[in-house]
Design a protein around this nucleic acid. Structure first.
Length: 584
DNA sequence: TTAGGGTTTG
């Protein structure tokens, strides 16, 4: 392993440097000496972007400073890293980190005169048998009651509140996390990252986090945490006795005995000092007018309109209420048709709005979700005697409203999966009983059409919210009545006009008062061709609503082209805002 | 930059 991590372990012992290596001072790095068994240790003061050399080899340059010789004239040295090792190092080496370089080649530095660094540089690569070790820094963690404005700190905390990552109005995902610790001080952190995976993987209140490099600022008289460069987090289950498996996106992290102890202490403290959240709600336990978190599996999804999106989910239990079915086009519904049909009595439709739509669209069918702060609402359909229960995930992020994707390794997911597998679907309809209309949304034969018509005669699912005071009247009765009257009807839409939106507008001739259709694409091409064949009529130039200019082309045809600059409020606009009409 | 915890009104 070219980049080894010194002191970074998952077990208990520390990884020592190979015993044959001896430390070398910066001042003893000279050409002509044997450095085979020597290593150089320094702190990263500068890194350059990873680049490729002319022959395609990866190249990464860092500058290390020798902390033992800060009084010397020369304090730093260039390290040139080649090949795979360059790529590996670029991922983990950060400004301020301490690294050990061994198995290097010493060569004259061509830039020493300009950069004022050591006269030689160190060249390292996997091929040359070099090794770079990262020395885990000793992190200091600040209790939440000792935070100072303008500092960058490392801290531990128990999650008291959180908003799962959501798409911010800027360029990043945002997650808001409120922490508490035994100092009984609360800190709200606003965390941003363009990569969803780089934000803390918090699934429930009570989880324990370790944040590195959080910037502290004062906001509205209170301390606030915000992501700073190099922000990294570990998240642990907050349950006393649960396995200590950190959730993180960092490729490398330190986690030693001491830190294990901190997590265990925080778990014990939280168990008696943090108010526990309410009981877990399953679909079988929902009630109207409830805000709850649901752990479930995604079975289907569909676009509804620009500001809402449908998620069909199940948790293996049956909701005791008649649940709302959001009407969507069959072709818009994504998911396994057979499964959707089999689970139709167990899935519920959750309509998510506004800022949650983007995230909802990206969810994969079959994934396990925790949807936070779903709102249940009882509503009545056309027939006032039948009411149903609606599930909404309203817009905004109040009270942590949002959607989180849980990994299959999550204990709650494991439990849910086992439960879902045990659910008896025998009572559900089999695939054979499904019509091909339901399977692919098209009519293949007359039987399909008939079954479709039958379904049209069932109760409609669209809820009219207006004119509830009027009873439905048959079309026959209306046709036999004298106008004007007010009616409310329930009917199947057979056809409508205009079929195209542009047909709502007609062309009107003020001279002969005739009305004409706006030409469609093909007709329009024809009109333009005809117009190009005849010269522009000068009598129609320079009217009150446009100014006209005419050119004659230089080619043999000597074609006359007129351009009319349309005025706005009798004024000519800026060229880029002007509507032009071209003739000829 | 974004949001800066404290439920939509579909």
């Amino acid at each position: 392993m070219p980049v080894q991590l010194l002191k970074i372990i998952k077990g208990k012992s520390e990884t020592p440097l190979p015993s044959h290596l001896q430390k070398e001072d910066l001042k003893h790095l000279e050409e002509g000496f044997d450095h085979t068994n020597k290593y150089f240790q320094g702190i990263v003061i500068l890194t350059y972007p990873l680049t490729k050399l002319g022959d395609g080899t990866d190249f990464f340059k860092v500058v290390l400073q020798d902390l033992d010789n800060l009084c010397s004239r020369i304090k730093s040295i260039n390290i040139l890293i080649y090949g795979k090792m360059a790529e590996d190092c670029a991922k983990v080496i950060r400004h301020g980190d301490t690294f050990v370089v061994a198995g290097f080649k010493l060569a004259k530095s061509p830039t020493a005169r300009e950069d004022g660094r050591h006269g030689c540089h160190l060249e390292v690569s996997e091929e040359a048998g070099s090794a770079i070790y990262s020395v885990a820094p000793k992190y200091v963690y600040t209790p939440l009651n000792r935070l100072k404005d303008g500092t960058v700190v490392n801290l531990y905390g128990v999650v008291k509140f959180f908003k799962p990552p959501y798409v911010s109005k800027g360029t990043d995902y945002c997650s808001v996390v409120t922490l508490v610790d035994p100092s009984n001080v609360k800190l709200t952190c606003t965390l941003f990252n363009g990569n969803l995976d780089s934000l803390p993987k918090i699934y429930k209140v009570g989880d324990i986090v370790r944040f590195h490099r959080v910037k502290i600022r004062e906001y509205n008289g209170q301390m606030q945490g915000i992501t700073s460069v190099g922000f990294a987090s570990l998240t642990f289950d907050g349950t006393v006795g649960a396995p200590l498996v950190p959730r993180t996106s960092s490729k490398v992290y330190t986690f030693m005995d001491e830190e294990q102890k901190t997590i265990e202490e925080l778990r014990v403290w939280a168990a008696s000092n943090l108010s526990v959240s309410g009981p877990v709600v399953k679909l079988s336990g929902v009630q109207p007018m409830l805000f709850f978190d649901l752990t479930c599996q995604l079975v289907g999804k569909a676009k509804v309109d620009g500001s809402s999106f449908l998620l069909k989910v199940w948790d293996g239990t049956k909701c005791p209420y008649v649940t709302w079915k959001v009407p969507v086009e069959a072709r818009d519904l994504e998911g396994e048709k057979v499964l959707l049909h089999q689970l139709q009595n167990l899935t519920v439709d959750i309509l998510v709005y506004d800022n949650h739509v983007q995230l909802a669209k990206s969810l994969k069918i079959g994934s396990f979700l925790r949807i936070y702060s779903i709102h249940t609402k009882q509503a009545s359909a056309d027939d006032k005697n039948v009411s149903h229960l609606e599930f909404h995930l309203h817009g905004g992020t109040c009270y942590g409203r949002g959607i989180g994707v849980l990994p299959e390794s999550n204990p709650d997911v494991k439990e849910l999966k086992a439960f879902l597998e045990s659910v008896d679907l025998a009572g559900s309809q089999s695939m054979e009983s499904m019509s091909s209309v339901e399977l692919d949304g098209t009519f293949n034969n007359i039987t399909d059409l008939e079954s479709h018509l039958q379904r049209c005669q069932q109760l409609s699912v669209t809820v009219l919210t207006d004119h509830q005071d009027l009873n439905n009247t048959e079309l026959k009765t209306i046709l036999n009545s004298a106008a004007p009257q007010q009616y409310r009807i329930r009917a199947k839409l057979r056809t409508y006009k205009p079929q195209k939106l542009y047909q709502s507008i007609k062309l009107h001739c003020s001279k002969c008062n005739s009305l004409q259709e706006v030409p469609d694409g093909d007709d329009f091409d024809f009109i333009l061709q005809r117009s190009a064949a005849t010269a522009p009529n000068p009598e129609l130039h320079n009217t009150s609503w446009y100014d006209s200019v005419m050119w004659t082309t230089q080619d043999q045809k000597q074609r006359k082209i007129a351009i009319h600059f349309v005025k706005h409020d009798e004024m000519l606009q800026e060229p880029e805002d002007t509507l032009l009409m071209i003739e000829g």
